[in-house]
Structures are given as structure tokens and as C-alpha cells.
Nucleic acid binder design. Structure first.
Lengths: 237, 237
DNA sequence: TACTGTGAACCAATTCACAGCC
DNA sequence: GGCTGTGAATTGGTTCACAGTA
């Protein structure tokens, strides 16, 4: 910018609020490492221990945790239970979140059955499917309800998170209805870009995109067998 | 993890080879946008058109495409079919990739049935499950085989990509066997960190992590209404 | 002594803004 | 005139390296 204000803003809210996005994405991984340690009876763990379990380096883990506060003890490490609680709280997992899953194909069923949701405070309030003939089928203790009930369910249970596992063609319409009904976060598994109003969060998981990224790297490995030195970006985690 | 000597390497291969990782991750999205345009009979599209369809801004799209070469025409836009081919080639989708899926629960079944794989050159060579009683079951035209056949299948078909959809506890063992048999890329859906030899690519998809990230943002939206600081950091999709 | 917490240096990715070309 | 391609500026993220401390 030519007339750059340079007044970069005072960066006042450094510590307390405003964790970098990349850090937020790793906190659940640390949480899992902590839970595993806890289950093994470990009560204190160093940044090195946790970093190994989480598949990152220890400097990154310490920097990440420093955004939450100073929860470690120099010369000792981190108290597993205490840190676990702090991360849970920061992620908002100390409260329950009401969820609906729309589109009950194989993937929707897999999610409905997945125990990892309920143990982290995600409560599936309903499964919804466009096929009225499937009303009443049960998966993972949840019942399929008809699409016309969507607005009632979202309203009645204060559903804030919607999971879309429909075919691509239906995704945008479902997203629109979810948002209109009050949902403010969407996890989209349909292979389609959906657009939403500002303030609504959308995360996308695309199975075929992940494979395509692997194919790119795979392609570059093969012919490079006679590779000079070790190639630069090897890992990926 | 290898704490590589940080031998930064010459960065010689600027243009032709060596696309930034963030760009690689978006190419499949552009490919999908191009396919959609093509299906609608559009033969030329501007960076703005494609960017909208892909959910990014046009400067980013142009910069991304510039890493592949200069495939557009100034004042006009991009030829849809031509660009589609160039991206496919760059991603390695003009050849077939042999894949195995290990762990045929709901998620493994969903993947076995997913048409989006075969249309992009991913050939599922086998479904494998630890339960021998399930041998012979069929999903999406593929048959479940017993785990003991893993090495034979990988060897016989030159399988380079393995998909892990087992429970967390089994993931590392399966990864070890896949790698020993010759697989060099892994897509891991199990909620576990797996470690592999250098040169092996691992990508991880974790359904519950995505929800936890949404919960973090969701938490910060709600109570922030009466926000003290009220930072302008409103995110978008 | 052993480990955390964090400025500073470094590197990657995004955005800007405009020259170049059809 | 409209749109691409790309250096330059900026922002975000990672790694280094060490001061601080139980």
C-alpha cells in the first residue's frame, strides 16, 4: 500500500485472546496426546514427550502452548491433567455442542457411529435425509428424521453446528437452510464449494482432494529415484 | 523425526518444478471448478470466474496458476479444457494409481463406494479387513480380502497409496506393513499419529479435529457479543 | 541441571498493484 | 479495455537459541 499507515495497531490482545489459526488446528492433536498420556498413568510430560506423541517438534509445541498462557513448570514439564483441561476449555470442549448431520449415506452413517464425537461434547441431535422412506432408521443411537423437520430441530435444540454429507448437488441448498435456521458453523464433506454469509464458519473435508495431493508427491518421487541428494520437502505428517 | 541439517538446497527449480505446498492443495479445487465449467459448456473462463467457483480470490488463483506456466491469454482468460489438462498432468492424474483400503468399517465402505476416486485415476485394488469372517464381502465392486494377502496385493499391483480406516490402535501396525510392502504414500483416517520412514508421505484426515476447530470459533462468537475489545477480526468462509 | 517461555531470525504464503499483451 | 502474469510489500508461521527459573 503506497500510503501505508504503518500504524500496525497496538497488538494489545496478544496473550489472552486470539490464537493463531495454525495453532488452533494443532490443539486437538495435543489434547489427544495428553489423553493418551493420562490413560497410561503419566502425570507430567515434557514438551519433548508431547511433541513426539503429537508428531511435531518441541519448539513448535511450546510456542503453541505459550499462546494459552504459562501452564508449564520450568525444569519439569507440564501437568497432564491441568494442561488437558486448559486446552479443552480453550477449544470450547467443556461445554456441549448440538450437531445435526444431513445426508445419511455411508459417510453420514460412519459419523453417526463415531464415538469420538460424543466423548468430546458433540451431541448429535438428529440425522436428516432427503429420502422420506428412510425416516426412523437408526445409527449409533440416533434416528433419521425427515428433512422438513430441519428447522424445528435446529431451533428446538439450539443446534450451532451442521455436518453436510450429502451429494455435491444438494450441499448449497442444505447449507442455506441450516444457516437460515440458525446454524453458524458447517463441516462440509460434500465435494462442492458452498458459500455462506459472513460470520458463518465453514470447514471442508474432501477425500478425493487428499488423494490428489498424495498423487502429486507420488509422481515426483517415482522418476526421481536416481535423485541427487535427499529431496527438500520429504515429510508431511 | 529427522532433525535434518537444514541444508537449505539451492532452490534452483523455480518455475518448471517445485510448486508451493499451499498451491498444490488448491489445484484439485481449481480442477473441480474447471470440470464444472466444462460440463456447463463454458470454454473460456477468467481468473475471476474460476476464483469465484473455487472460493478463493482471483489474485491467488492467478499466482497459483503461474507456478504451472503461462497458460492463460491476457485480455481473455483461460481455455477451460487446456487448463484442465495441464492441472491434471501436474497433479499426476493422467496416470492411474493403485490403492488399497485397510479397515472396512463404515468409513472404509464409504470410500470404497465413492465414485470420485475412480474417475480421477485412483484404482482400488483391494479392500482389507482384520476380520477373516468378512472375506468376500463386496462394496462398490471391490471385494474384501484377508489381511495376510496385503503384501501380495501391494507387490502384484504396484500399489503406491494406502488408505487406513482402521481403529486408532491398529493404525501404526498397518502403516508399517504397508510401507514394508512398498507403499510410499498413506492417507490416514485413524485418529492416531503414525510415524514412517523419511520419504514416505502421510496425510491425515481427522473428523473430530475438524469439529473441535469449529467449536473453538463457535465459542468465540457467542459470548463475544458484548465484547470488550470487539476486534474487527470477523472471519469469512 | 533440565526444562519452559519467548524475542529475534527466518521462511512461506498472501495480497497488492501495475506492466505487458491481446 | 480487459485480463494475465509477476515483482514487491505484507502478513502469517516456523525455527533458533538462550535467558529465566523451579
Amino acid at each position: 500500500m503506497t500510503h501505508a499507515p504503518t500504524q500496525r495497531m497496538r497488538t494489545e490482545a496478544r496473550q489472552g485472546r486470539g490464537i493463531p489459526e495454525a495453532t488452533v488446528a494443532r490443539l486437538p492433536v495435543y489434547l489427544r496426546a495428553l489423553t493418551a498420556s493420562s490413560d497410561r498413568g503419566v502425570s507430567v510430560a515434557s514438551s519433548q514427550d508431547l511433541a513426539t506423541a503429537a508428531g511435531v517438534n518441541s519448539a513448535k509445541l511450546r510456542k503453541d502452548l505459550s499462546y494459552l498462557g504459562s501452564y508449564g513448570t520450568r525444569g519439569v514439564g507440564y501437568d497432564v491433567e491441568y494442561l488437558r483441561y486448559q486446552i479443552s476449555r480453550e477449544l470450547g470442549l467443556t461445554q456441549d455442542w448440538a450437531v445435526v448431520i444431513v445426508g445419511i449415506g455411508n459417510l453420514g452413517q460412519a459419523l453417526a457411529n463415531y464415538a469420538g464425537f460424543s466423548t468430546r461434547g458433540f451431541r448429535i441431535m438428529a440425522l436428516l435425509d432427503a429420502d422420506p422412506a428412510r425416516e426412523g432408521e437408526r445409527f449409533g443411537g440416533h434416528e433419521i428424521r425427515r428433512m422438513t423437520d430441519l428447522e424445528d430441530i435446529v431451533g428446538a435444540h439450539g443446534v450451532s453446528i451442521g455436518v453436510i454429507t450429502t451429494p455435491a448437488a444438494a450441499a448449497q441448498g442444505v447449507a442455506d437452510r441450516l444457516v437460515a435456521a440458525g446454524v453458524t458453523s458447517i463441516l462440509n464433506f460434500a465435494p462442492a464449494v458452498i458459500s455462506v454469509a459472513p460470520g458463518i464458519d465453514v470447514r471442508k473435508v474432501d477425500l478425493s482432494i487428499e488423494l490428489q495431493i498424495l498423487a502429486y508427491h507420488e509422481q515426483r518421487k517415482g522418476p526421481a529415484t536416481a535423485g541427487v541428494t535427499s529431496p527438500p520437502g520429504v515429510e508431511s505428517a
